[in-house]
């Protein structure tokens, strides 16, 4: 099949969301950034390339729609009538949500190749690419297939503890080796405010993200606290940015979004 580069021609910015470690909140940060960008009036797309654990469909409550085809390729799934948030995920292509994708690298590489080039995104301000943890097949495949198109850079997500920042240091080396600009570091799960007594506990330590940014000369985009309202919103697929505009988490995410837009030159 002919490689289709047209599909990305109207996408203004491509941003990867990376982390060396799993479970630090890449998908949550991707989802909330997309929702925050939409509130800023941007048209946003999310490409979920985590083949073994796609979680974005659930976070955006789009269920398991059929993916349609058009002349230009696969039509992404829109979460709203205005088509301001488009999503494509491997989750849509699986028949059974419990089914494990037990694939080795070459097969993953082939599917991601299609994914990146065959989705008809149309006009987008920002395309966020949510990746699985690590620095392996999926990441190389995404980069190879995006080579013809410009990748603006990567947002790195970490939790504050050293075990996590240690993995992100490796991810920074990956970015340097592959020539990806680091747009900044987000510290997620930074402190938990007890709903009973308002005491803030640093469940996973604190400050690791900021320290790492200093150490590596990267921009620190901000920290997002642990917030049960945020985790239940993503579990239930509700728009946190719309439901809790008063919360500290909301302002943390909007400020990260604003800094990100600035570094993209908007």
């Amino acid at each position: 099949m002919e490689q289709n580069t047209e599909n990305l021609s109207q996408v203004r910015h491509v941003v990867l969301v990376l982390s060396g470690k799993g479970g630090v909140g890449k998908s949550t940060i991707t989802t909330e950034l997309a929702l925050a960008l939409r509130q800023e009036g941007k048209k946003v797309g999310i490409l979920d390339v985590d083949l073994c654990g796609p979680s974005i469909p659930r976070m955006l409550s789009v269920g398991r729609p059929d993916v349609h085809q058009c002349d230009a390729g696969w039509v992404p799934v829109y979460t709203d009538a205005e088509k301001s948030l488009a999503l494509m995920s491997i989750g849509f292509l699986m028949e059974d949500p419990d089914e494990a994708v037990v694939w080795r690298g070459p097969k993953k590489t082939a599917l991601i190749g299609q994914f990146v080039t065959d989705v008809s995104w149309g006009e987008l301000d920002v395309l966020l690419v949510d990746t699985p943890p690590g620095t392996s097949d999926e990441h190389l495949a995404v980069l190879e297939n995006l080579k013809k198109h410009r990748v603006d850079g990567a947002v790195l997500v970490t939790t504050p503890q050293a075990v996590s920042t240690g993995d992100v240091r490796r991810e920074i080396t990956f970015c340097k080796k592959t020539g990806i600009r680091i747009l900044g570091i987000v510290e997620n799960m930074s402190g938990f405010v007890c709903p009973h007594c308002s005491e803030c506990s640093n469940v996973f330590s604190k400050g690791g993200g900021e320290e790492l940014a200093k150490l590596t000369g990267s921009v620190f985009l901000g920290s997002v606290p642990l917030d049960p309202q945020l985790s239940s919103s993503t579990e239930e697929g509700k728009d946190f940015m719309q439901s809790f505009p008063e919360s500290a988490t909301f302002s943390a995410i909007s400020s990260i979004c604003a800094t990100l837009l600035k570094s993209l030159g908007n």
């Binding site: 080795r104 690298g105 070459p106 620095t135 392996s136 240091r169 490796r170 920074i172 080796k177 592959t178």
Partner: peptide, 8 residues
């Protein structure tokens, strides 16, 4: 800081 960028 070493990254292990390896395929399967």
């Amino acid at each position: 800081d070493d990254a292990v960028i390896w395929r399967g």
